[in-house]
Every structure is written in structure tokens, then in C-alpha cells.
Design a protein around this nucleic acid. Structure first.
Lengths: 185, 185
DNA sequence: GACACCGTGTTGGATATTCAACAAACAGTT
DNA sequence: AACTGTTTGTTGAATATCCAACACGGTGTC
């Protein structure tokens, strides 16, 4: 998205995205029509097609934007040491909290969305990259185990309206990671 | 405002009006520039001039719309008897409550705004027309006394975020009108 | 199968808005 | 008075969006 985008285009995309997200909160993706997106957004349907191919395209672009933003946000940190893992987790959670509505919507969808996978990839890259040697099969499964667990913790956190602080959740995830059930003792 | 107004025009006018009202809440009318209205509204300045002549025109149109809506709202009631005064007052207060933000802004301005006078005219017409014989000088002063008092009650009510119900305020105004200080006994 | 309705993808012309630029007026500073 | 910065009112060309319409496909009803 160019920095010099005409403000009309910006507005149009914004309202189409927001309307689509609102509808996603109310009904299944497969039952959402281009027409109702445009009615809700108060945008002419032909204009929709100058920006997006269809609902899949719209969804994909929304997801891509969030992923790009997330990456950017996380790349703004210059962490150096291994104990930075908890800080990175916190940072990721801050981002998610800031965009909690769209993140909840996208992570909550009941299809095998690529968004969930993309978030897991980011988490894997930023949170575990320096903590686990990825060269063994076990390590690969372990990282999947950990990231999947973390993701579902995040989903629950979102469902609880991000009541706990990002730091608190980051600490919990870190301890679950390091101690597993030993954490309960 | 035609029923078939192009949606782009509708949007443009809406954001210009809302931005102007927001600025009115923050600073004096005389210090508000066309430029900052447009910046806040994210609308090109030349577009402002296709809709409005200047800030005065914008203000005037906003006021005219509110007055027209108010009249319409009040004309939807078919009251028949003299005791309907209290119902009309309530109705007017309902309208004001529904549009409390803009009403408070416009009534709160520290210039001799025509809006205040126009609201007083409406109040005079709907609330007192059947209750006071307007043919004497004293009656004219009396109605001015009553309407002015009522209007300042309304302003105070708005400043208290319309905490009391329109009915409660309507009853109070009615009793102040009918009994003056006897109400305190 | 015929019909009605709905959403879709597309088209062409009209319209509203954008943008950059200009000249002028205004206000503040030296 | 000269200079600087800001806002204003305006202009013309480009652009984005609007609107109505069309043909088509899909669905449901009789």
C-alpha cells in the first residue's frame, strides 16, 4: 500500500475492509456476498471490483496487511540475548492486543485459515528461533507443540477481552514452554 | 437535501459537518479555519468550496438542518388539548436528548447565535402557543421570560448529560411556568 | 420445465473529488 | 517597509467512484 495512495482509495478500502470484518463477526465467510459488503460499506459494487477480485481476495489482503504490520512491529525491536524471548512474546501480544478485534475475528474463523498458520510462522520465527535448535525432528514437533499451545492461549486471552496484560501472558507462555506441567507445582 | 443525493456528496457533507462540530467543541468559532476542517475531515479543500461558501455557511446549514428536523419531529405529534403542553415539551426534550452532542455544542457557543433564537421560536410556537394569549405586551414579556428560563434549564440539563428523563424536565418546566416560586412550597 | 428472484461480473458515461498550482490577503517579526 | 509563513478562493486536468444496465448462472417454487 503506497504512501501516496489517493485518499479516496484509502477511504474505500477502509470501509470495505471494516464492513467485511463486521460481517465476518456475524456470519460464516461462505455466506457473505459482495453485495452486502458494499451495502454495508455504502460503496458501489463496481467500485469493489476495482479494488478486489472477490471476497477471497479481500480476506487475503486483510490478512496480508496484518501480517506485514505484525512483522514490522516486531522488527522494530533490537533484541540481542536469548532471554529476549519473553520480551518478543510480550511485544507480539501487545500488537495483538492493539488489533484485538480483527485478530480475534481472523483467528476465530472456523476454517483452516491461512492467517492462523501465518501467525504461527511469525511466532515460531520470533519467539523460538533462538531458543530451540531446529535441526532435529523432535525439535520440529516440539516447536509445533509449543507454538500451537501458545496460539490457543492467545485465542483464549482474546476471548477474555485481553483482560490480563501482555506481560503476564508472555510470562505464562514462557513458563509453560520451559516447565510444562512442572509449572503447576 | 434531496432524497437522491449522490452518496459521495452525502459522505463529504457528513464528515465536514462532524469535523466542524468537533472543532467547535474544542475552540472558538472565529479561530476555526477552512483548512483545518478539511484536514480533520480528510477532504480536499476545494471540495469544501463546492459544498459551502465558508464556515458561516457551514454553520448556518447545520443549524438549519437541526431546526428542520426538530420541527418535523414535533409536527409528527397530533396533540389536541391545552394540557398537551407538557407532552410537547417532553417531545422537544426527547429530540434534544437524541441530538444532545450537536445541540449542546450549538447552544453552548458564546456568541449570540441565531440557533438559540430559533430554538426559542420553536419552543414558543409549540409549547406556549395555546397556553398564553399573545395579544398583550405583558404576555409577550411573559412568554419571553418563560422560554428563556426553559432554555437555560435545557442547557443545564445538557451539561448534566441529560441525566434526568425528558418527562421529568418537562414536568419541572411546566410547574415553573405555572407556579413560579410557589413551586418551592 | 417455466418462472421469479437474487447475486455476479462487466460496461460505458456521468459525476464528484483529488491534486497541484497560483495570486492575493493577512498576520507576525525584524 | 521588507520578509516570512499561513490561509484563502480559484482553476484545470486527472482520477476514482457513481449509476444504470446487461447477460449470465444459481436457487427455489409451482
Amino acid at each position: 500500500m503506497s504512501i501516496n495512495l489517493d485518499r479516496r482509495k484509502k477511504y474505500t478500502r477502509m470501509v470495505l475492509k471494516n464492513s467485511f470484518i463486521q460481517l465476518l463477526n456475524e456470519k460464516a465467510f461462505s455466506s457473505i456476498t459482495v453485495k452486502e459488503i458494499c451495502v454495508l460499506a455504502d460503496i458501489n459494487r463496481s467500485t469493489f471490483y476495482t479494488h478486489y477480485t472477490d471476497q477471497f481476495d479481500l480476506l487475503y489482503q486483510i490478512e496480508a496487511e496484518i501480517i506485514e504490520e505484525m512483522n514490522k512491529y516486531l522488527n522494530e525491536c533490537n533484541f540481542v540475548e536469548e532471554e529476549e524471548s519473553i520480551e518478543m512474546t510480550e511485544k507480539l501480544l501487545e500488537y495483538i492486543k492493539n488489533r484485538k478485534e480483527i485478530c480475534q475475528t481472523l483467528l476465530h474463523r472456523n476454517t483452516g485459515t491461512s492467517f492462523e498458520k501465518r501467525v504461527m510462522d511469525i511466532a515460531r520465527e520470533f519467539l523460538l528461533n533462538k531458543a530451540i535448535n531446529m535441526k532435529t525432528t523432535e525439535a520440529s514437533y516440539l516447536s509445533t507443540f509449543i507454538i500451537s499451545g501458545a496460539l490457543h492461549v492467545i485465542k483464549e486471552w482474546l476471548a477474555n477481552d485481553t483482560k490480563e496484560s501482555p506481560r503476564r501472558i508472555a510470562e505464562m507462555i514462557s513458563q509453560f514452554t520451559n516447565k510444562g506441567l512442572l509449572f503447576m507445582n
